[in-house]
Simulated assay, not measured.
Amino acid sequence: MDKYSEVNTAIALVYQAVMAPEHWPNALAAISSLLEADKAVFVTGDTSSVMASTVQHNHDPERLLAYNEIYHRQDPWWGPLQSVLPGTAIHVQKLKPISEITHTEYYHDHLVTADIGDSLVSILDDNAGIQSAIGFQRRLKQDAFTPAQGAMLQTLIPHLVNAVKMNWQLTQHAIRESLQISGQAPGLVLILDDKGRVLGPDNAAETIAARTSVLKVTHNRLQAAAPADQNRLEAALNSVLHEGIGQAFPLKDPGYNAPVILRASPLPEAAQMRLRTMTDNLAVICVDLPVTPTLSGVFVVSETYGLSAKEQALLTSFSESYNLRATADALDITYETARWHLKQILAKTGTHNQAELLVKTAQAAR
């Protein structure tokens, strides 16, 4: 098989792994063959503590476990790698030459024992402090990787980055589908890890801020505005993550005429299949928003702050859709015109952002 065919085979196996995770070892083996690498590992890494090994090719599982528990904190390349943009293949010798670490405990206790010499690595995705990364290694007595082999890996990295993104998209689809099958109408759906970090969707912070004032995403962590609600949120997460038991409770949001319902539940089985290459200890949070702010609130705000007819029409549509582009389409105006009207409304009402405006509108309802 020529190199062109080998590349196509490797790419095909990567996308097969998106649909069926059991293909990941085959994909790693195919890419290793292209690079003339002896070992490969596809991991998710927690930048604040340890690595979580996932899929490997020709690695000793016991050595990977030792790396997770002990040696990751000593890894001389992990720190410099954080300055490299995701999606960039890098030769670790460019981050720190191996000649500079041969005197360290990390070299003798981990690399020599695990028979790892040179490496090509890349961060594929960085979300909420959880990084997907891939590495290809040669044994200690083998020659270093060549620039051509680094370039070869770089041609494959976009496909690996795309595979990670597709995996997340399919996971979220599987969660929503499972909720609908069980008779639950999913509102806002978030995926959290055991530290309360929001792993998906990517726009979680903006979505929460625009839709409710009782929850917020701060430093990638979901938090409740009221201390009592925060305690209930933490208890619900602990119940799901440590006991596998879901919980639900109401939150009183002044922007709505009925409680916001927060439901915490374990990952559906279909989503667990999708996340085989991620950490297992995850929870699904569904935030059910009962109704939109009432139109009477729009009327009160319009009368109180002297909104024009066009501004009132925009606020009416925006209070229903929560989406300025959808509002522009509904009113048959350009997005820039909608933005201009919204800025005028914010100035007149003394609000600073869309979330504040929606809360003020809801609170004005009589």
Rank of each mutant, 00 (worst) to 15 (best):
Q149K: 01
R232K: 08
S119R: 02
G196S: 07
P266D: 01
A128M: 06
W24D: 00
M51Q: 12
D229C: 02
G87N: 01
S178V: 03
S5Y: 09
H57E: 05
F299A: 15
Q312N: 13
A37R: 14
V214K: 01
T337H: 15
H72P: 08
H91Y: 14
T9P: 10
T207K: 02
A225N: 15
T146C: 12
L282H: 06
A37W: 04
N353K: 07
V50P: 10
D202M: 10
P259V: 06
I70N: 13
M152Y: 11
A174L: 03
W340D: 12
T316R: 12
K343H: 11
S319I: 08
I191W: 09
N257G: 11
L190N: 01
L120E: 03
M152V: 04
P61C: 00
A309V: 06
S319L: 14
M273L: 11
D280E: 14
I70R: 14
N127M: 12
S99N: 08
Q169V: 11
G45I: 15
R197W: 08
T337V: 15
Q354S: 11
R73Y: 11
E336V: 13
V260K: 02
Q230E: 11
R276H: 13
K94V: 10
L358R: 01
L324V: 10
A10R: 05
T327G: 02
A52W: 10
P259W: 02
I285Y: 04
T212F: 05
E320M: 09
E36L: 11
Q272N: 07
G87L: 09
I191M: 06
P147D: 05
L222K: 02
R274Y: 10
I261G: 13
A10L: 08
H57Y: 03
A313G: 08
V55N: 01
D143K: 13
L28M: 04
L156F: 01
A29I: 06
I31W: 09
N8I: 13
W168R: 14
K39Q: 00
D194L: 10
M273R: 07
T104M: 02
G45V: 15
V112W: 11
K310F: 13
M51P: 09
L153C: 03
A248G: 03
S302I: 09
Y15N: 01
T334I: 09
Q74Y: 05
S119P: 01
V55P: 00
R197E: 08
E206L: 13
D126E: 02
R339V: 15
H108E: 07
K360M: 09
T361R: 02
F136S: 00
K252Y: 12
D194S: 14
I345S: 06
E234A: 02
A338Y: 06
